[in-house]
Design a protein around this nucleic acid. Structure first.
Lengths: 201, 201, 201, 201
DNA sequence: ATTTAACCGAGACGGTACGTCACGTCTTCTA
DNA sequence: TAGAAGACGTGACGTACCGTCTCGGTTAAAT
């Protein structure tokens, strides 16, 4: 095993202070007015320390939100599986609606979205590290339902996931209506009705 | 009759040049790197002429896209109504998929989205001037289908519209899959199945 | 008398309002921050009306100060001539010291000086319309003294005037000391001593 | 020994380039048209580097002229003292006349004067760093003449200095006549005559 | 235990763009 | 046709950040 001659000794304290500062600031001023100098200043850190370890302010923000919001540890968080698909999805959708409606989740998530709309590389990283694991968990739950005969076996799972989850995400992003449990229930009923009657052609 | 206080009027040529320049530039450099000075310079216009008439670069971009993409004239563009709901929606969804997949629509629309994620006032204006008229046209088509007995009368039309159209918009925004006619058709089938089996409770 | 077919009908009210506004403003913000737009705005006048009649802000200021400070009417104001040269000059110098020390004269005169240091054409106009008439009045008084045998006939009058009056002007401009009657008297005594003992070579 | 807080230091090269550029530009366009951006651009320097170290364009110009014209090193340059007061002052006054008449001195000195007329703080700094040391050197020479019996002991030295030097400065500033050696000699003769006959009352 | 090289905070640097201000010209309308 | 109003192209202002680059100083691995 080749040994590094003088390895990078990254400061864990600085990293934590930077992510903390970035998270706070994005909640205060939004993504557009977030700046590297402000992060460095609030974190009590030199600018170079940020530039050394992250390629863009979007990347800092992304990591800050991952650490705070999703725990940093990468366990995929499976969907509940009680045997009752509709009940399980209702639980998830209602929880999602409540989360998206709360400012603690809304503000940083919106900032993250702004970052990704402008930065395709960041969007790709999000897809790999967040979106795809989440989607795989959803696929697993739907496959379980298929095995239980609650959904047709011919179903395209990605279309099914889109049909169930996308409308709420879209309403959140565009603020085109309130994110209530009633909305979640109505969406779910419509989507499941459509999926159950899906023909195999 | 009260007489006007002899005001200097707004230059139509400058306004057109600014919107043209903004539209071109956002296609070349994206929303993040779009700047007022670059717009003014390319339009052959003073910066103050932009600041005098628009509150932000997002507002300029918004108007530029409206003028170019949607024609500026505010006719609501009704959905086709041949009597066959599914065929009509298929036409619309397929066309939407093709449009969103084309760079000419994708680039500026993504820029506009970036602007709106950061700027709530802009999002509100979009909702009033674009989203709501479009949605009303969709509601009109669905009401027609209800009258024809093709959809349950008890249907919540806004949920129906979300179920039909949101998944494609979401896939476009997140680039989570290809925007094909097959995808359009599959989404539509799922959504309509769900809507047709909607119970009146 | 031939009548003009459609002559320029300059508005006396506008001219007066402009000069008044310029004089006020220069006292409030100084020459450097004085601007055409501010003058026009305070005078309730269009900018073009200023540009039509004056070539520069310095010219407006010059005329404003002439009108206010020196009466606009061009009578040369002779020096007193009681027969006692020293007493007459003492009267004039003491009065000058008091005037220069008062803010009402100091502020606009300093602004006018600033204008002239930067603008040679303005300085030339000042020389012709203010400095030279004033100097001629001084020459007349000194010539009278020569005729009375109080000063040598061989005296170069311009050097004499410089010797008597320049030190006070210089101290005022550079703020290198207080402008008191004592200073005026001491200067005068020194200068007159020098001039009286002037040899004819 | 207390250790410095590890500060990034000022760039001597940038400082020199800025002063050089300012000096050149003021000779080309004059004080009124001198601008920070033009200085920065010619010096190959960011504007912020100027704003960081100087409070105004006048301050830059002041330092530029000090460095170029007076050497930056603060030795007071004593007046010549050969024992013959009149000859010594003639040397100085003639040299001053020649310098003020030369464009290399006239242009920047006039610009500096323009700056000081508008900016009292700058004038104060000039008084402390240039005017007062110069005046002290003159006082020293006059005191020496008093000790040699060439001037009355009761003389107020500041009035004497004004009487000898101010007329030439005033003629230079107002361009009211040519700055020749003859003028210098005539002024000096007049002033010294006046000073020598000064009575002790 | 000492060396030593990367990391760290700080912040100056050359730049770019910001949003504001005033310039001097012009166009429109009124008196 | 002079004048009030004010939009226009122009360009400098002073500020905010960008991303790069020294500066000492402080560690922790490799001598």
């Amino acid at each position: 095993m080749p040994k590094q001659p003088a390895a990078a000794r990254r400061s864990a304290a600085s990293r934590a202070a930077i992510l903390e500062a970035a998270f706070e600031l994005v909640g205060e001023v939004g993504y557009g007015r977030l700046g590297i100098e402000a992060i460095a200043s609030r974190a009590g850190v030199g600018k170079q320390t940020i530039y050394r370890w992250w390629p863009s302010k979007g990347a800092v923000l992304f990591e800050a939100i991952l650490v705070r919001g999703f725990g940093d540890g990468e366990e995929p968080v499976p969907l509940p599986d009680t045997g009752d698909l509709e009940a399980d999805l209702r639980t998830v959708l209602r929880a999602t609606a409540l989360e998206l409606a709360s400012p603690e989740v809304d503000r940083p998530l919106r900032a993250l979205t702004a970052a990704m709309v402008e930065d395709e590389a960041l969007a790709e990283e999000y897809r790999i590290r967040v979106e795809e694991p989440t989607r795989e968990a959803k696929r697993a739950r739907l496959r379980s339902a298929q095995r239980a005969g609650q959904l047709p076996a011919s179903l395209d799972l990605d279309i099914a996931i889109d049909a169930i989850f996308a409308p709420m995400a879209h309403r959140w992003l565009t603020r085109s209506g309130p994110l209530t449990e009633e909305y979640a229930d109505a969406l779910l009923e419509t989507a499941l009705n459509g999926l159950r009657h899906h023909g195999p052609n």
